[in-house]
Design a protein around this nucleic acid. Sequence first.
DNA 1: AGCACGCCGACT
DNA 2: GTCGGCGTGCTC
Length: 803
Amino acid sequence: MNIASVIVDVQAKSINQTFDYLIPERYVDILTTGMRVIVPFGPRKITGFVVGLKDNSEFDKLKEIIEVLDIEPVLTEELLELGKWVADDTLTMYITAYQAMLPQVLKAQYKKELVRNTDERLPEDLEFLFAGRDYISFEEFEQSSIPYSKLQKAIQETAISINYLVKSKITKKYVTFVEPNKEIYLIEESLMDLPQNATKQRELLGYFIKHPNPIEQGKLLKLTNTTRSTIKTLIEKGLLREYKQEVYRNPYDENAFERTYPLTLTEQQERAILPIKEKIEKQEHDVFLVHGVTGSGKTEIYLQAIQEVLEKGKEAIVLVPEISLTPQMVKRFKGRFGDKVAVMHSALSNGEKYDEWRKIQSKEVSVVVGARSAIFAPFENIGIIIIDEEHETTYKQEDQPRYHARDVAIKRGQYHQCPVVLGSATPTLESFARAQKGVYTLATLDKRTNEKEMPEVSIVDMREELHSGNRSMFSQVLKESIEQTIARGEQIVLLLNRRGYSTFVMCRDCGHVKECPHCDIALTYHKRNNQLKCHYCSYEEPMPNVCPECSSDSIRYFGTGTQRVEESLSQLMPHVRVIRMDVDTTRKKGAHEKLLKQFANKEADILLGTQMIAKGLDFGNVTLVGVLTADSMLHLPDFRSSEKTFQLLTQVSGRAGRHELPGQVIIQTYTPEHYSIQLSSQYDYKQFFLQEMHIRRKFRYPPYVFLALITVSHPNHVRAIQFTQRIVHYLSKVVQEETTTVLGPTPSPVTRVKDRYRYQCMIKYKNEPDLRRNIKKIINLYEEEMRKENLLITVDMQPYHLM
DNA sequence: AGCACGCCGACT
DNA sequence: GTCGGCGTGCTC
């Protein structure tokens, strides 16, 4: 086995295959599949993943592997196979899939440098550029105005050569420790020799006489109230010594979590967990859908199932939507399983993510709680996979590889022969339909563990409100309820369902709306720096004082942002204390937790925010939940908009009265008759499911069909339509006519982005085994145009957003 | 993708 | 001749 098959780090279709390399003698015994290597590729050096070992190659002139980067493989056999499957399934390149499975820092960066090979004089400008150095970065050359041909000539004459470097991003964290450098009695003796006025040194040595063990420098400084310079002096005198030790960054301090113990399960919980435990016991794969209302104790089921798995010496993966939003969730897992838990989410720094990943790789932990990508945790003996809030759209990755964590979970569950548990109060129609068909095993929890009823929901028709002369964004009922709640000393959560709205800028005189010059979308106003920004291409311009069209000075920002709600709230009820939570106030790291803590400490009466406050918050003192505009996302061009509205309303309702106090929910809407609003107010998931399924069937949408979305983008409007048309035409010919529909060309909801026109072709199909192959064919067909005229074709199998 | 190489037209 | 621009083909 002296030849390695390598997937190299080049994102190009023609490179999407293995390349064979000779394994140098020194690596033969070390190298295994799943390790990263540095290999020569043309003139440069790049990294790659070893996916296979063999004795022979069809290629006769093999190059040698330059370096092996890992001691332990970063991808297990299972993950190598899984990555291949993900890539094939989502029509992405293997290298893209593999990189998505690993923490960012394992992805190499490439650099070029110029090397001076001769003592002889170089041409004047090059000599000047090198300025006596032997190496300079390639960028330095590029920034100079020296023509490339001059460098080329020098390279040909071998006076200069190019070095291709592979740089690792990995930074391990080190902490300095200090300890005595001599026996304690010698230290005690040396105390005598110190000058009378060396009080700080005495203090330090005195500390070590009492505690002769190594101590972190930072702690030592605090404890002894000394400075680094004193330690330095003692090190120079040979009395102390210091050393650096690698440590894991610790985003969560284990000690901060109070230990919790298994609760007694209710009868319903018991019934739900039993079949899961049975599968764990028998080591069989199955998918469970736990449909449980908010407060029905789903998490306790997860915890006890995991307990079972850990006792069997196996591992568990738990996916949660966006964990930074639910510190309470982390608390529950860390509280139960302590330092057996690794946490993986987007708010961690790259270094922290890497450290958590290494804890998993080294099996120092056996539970990982994390966002989407945690599904690729390098465990090798998985006993259960849990996806909480299964309906959340964040489980679908929106850039390549466009995988859905649920699909990957099931794939891994099959491999490990372990159960996969999907939990939600409002399952996706896809999952619930599968449960109905018996593909998944359904467990229903319709009772809350505290036996409390779900809070009463009242719907307020904002049209009537308007008719009766109330033009504010607070209905009379909501206003009164807020006042009463505050009077009782209880708290309120106000949700501004803002998606679809944003703070766009419009001229009140001529109606002119400021749009991005590169995209077909209104610019968004940012109060912080008084700038207008495009959310698609990051274009920015200052907020104009007068309308660029009619020069009127009545140009204003519109839309119900949280800021405006806050302002009008303080006008209406000046005494009320409000905490506002939105992208602006939570941008800083830890700001999120801080705001929630303040609210929990009752430093405010109202928590006002967007979607992010709807999820997983649990405050005992909140008894009123208000939804300001329930229907604002109901009319988006998205076949899931009803489902999403139902989910959001149900979820936010669950925030009221979770503990002793009874809760109340007020939903303001302009379409009170809409079934997703009506049924969510009655907590009737089943009826919603039936009604929505009816509509999905009528209009042929999932789960009745599968979707595939091909988006074509081109700088030229007509060409974009032309290519889409051709794709539609080609596909229509090759698919099964009776059950498959090929739609298009349809302009994408945002037709122009970054000066490119976007059109799409949607495929609705039931059974189309060759679809991926056919789409691949199309892409290959247009390869030339993609290179020559900047045509771009992206494919999303099972799209979530039809953008 | 990203690099080398080769051809071509424009420029001093 | 020198420079930059662009098209082509290759990477084990």
